[in-house]
Amino acid sequence: MGLRSLRSGYRGAVSSAVASSAALLLAGAPGPDAASAQPTTPSFTYSHDPADLIARIRIRAGEIRGPQSRTASVYGDGRVVVEFPASFKKPGRHETSLDPAELDDLVTTLVVARLPEFDADLVRAAVGAEQATRADVAHVADADVVEIELYLDAYQQDPAVPSATLEKYVTWRALSQDTARFPGVTALADLVTARDALALLMARSDLEAVP
């Protein structure tokens, strides 16, 4: 079965309550996407193939020398693979599994946080516009760099637009600091939500080291 084809797996229509949350998030969205945003119900499907990556987060601490990023990857069967740097207390590869409900909750969280809609150029423009109203400037040295990937077999935000496969890659530097400095750019807060949901995978107590 092709990667991009719609599978017979879970059809993740977001519930009405979740849709309401999404509408609130959209209402506060910055820039041009805010103007066009409508309170719609995003729908999505994702692969249940154990070999297919659904989501991944990589967090790089700028000041740690060498290949020292922390990574969590989630696959279609709910398998979670976490990798820690060699200098960490629990170095190397660890694994656990999400049950179907947990996996679906995770993907739903990412969708509700509008990760599929995140447009870095638009968000940067919104940041720039807010910065232009301030007399001071800010800089964060050695800030964390977060990278997030999301793969959906089908995603539909606007019912008027046909659903399509989604391969999303987002990276942002100094996300925590930017979110605090530019509270009007709610897309950053949404990205924090997505980051935190995925980063929690690294903190699960049921992770087991894999030789």
């Binding site: 601490a61 001071d136 800010a138 800089h139 964060v140 964390d144 100094a174 600091q177």
Partner: peptide, 15 residues
């Protein structure tokens, strides 16, 4: 821990 996963210097400046 909310500001960094390792270490950072955050500054504000004026021209």
């Amino acid at each position: 821990d909310a500001q960094t996963s390792f270490a950072a210097c955050s500054t504000v400046g004026s021209f």
